[in-house]
Amino acid sequence: MVRRALLFSVTSSASYLLIATVFAIFCMAAGHNTMEMIYGGAATIVLPLVTGIEVAWLWNDRS
């Protein structure tokens, strides 16, 4: 259980850094309006959580 929690934490953090960086670069390069800013802000929170849950849930625990 601790292993899955650690896996969730690591994958969520890595996913957050990647998604936030990509969105920040896109916003600086292309600009954005208020609706895109709201979607981007929500996506940088929701997508890493979903990624962490999926990896922790589907990870084959061979200990």
Rank of each mutant, 00 (worst) to 15 (best):
I19L: 15
V50Q: 07
N60K: 07
F8H: 01
A14F: 15
I25L: 15
A20Q: 12
V50D: 12
V55P: 04
T11E: 13
T44H: 11
Y39P: 02
L18K: 04
A56I: 05
M28P: 00
L6R: 04
S13P: 02
L47F: 15
T21F: 15
T21I: 05
G31D: 10
D61L: 09
Y16C: 10
S12R: 00
N60L: 08
S63C: 01
V22N: 09
G40S: 14
P48L: 13
V50W: 14
A56H: 12
A30P: 04
A29M: 11
R4G: 02
R62F: 02
A5V: 01
Y16L: 14
W59I: 01
A24D: 11
M28V: 06
C27E: 08
L58G: 03
G41I: 04
S15V: 03
L49M: 15
V10M: 11
V22M: 13
T44F: 14
Y16K: 06
V2W: 02
L18D: 08
A14P: 04
M1T: 00
A42M: 15
I53R: 00
L49S: 10
W59M: 03
V55D: 01
P48D: 02
A43T: 09
S63Q: 05
A56L: 03
W57T: 00
A56K: 04
R62N: 10
M35F: 15
L49C: 13
A24N: 04
I45F: 15
G40H: 11
I19C: 09
V46A: 13
N60C: 05
A29H: 08
A5R: 01
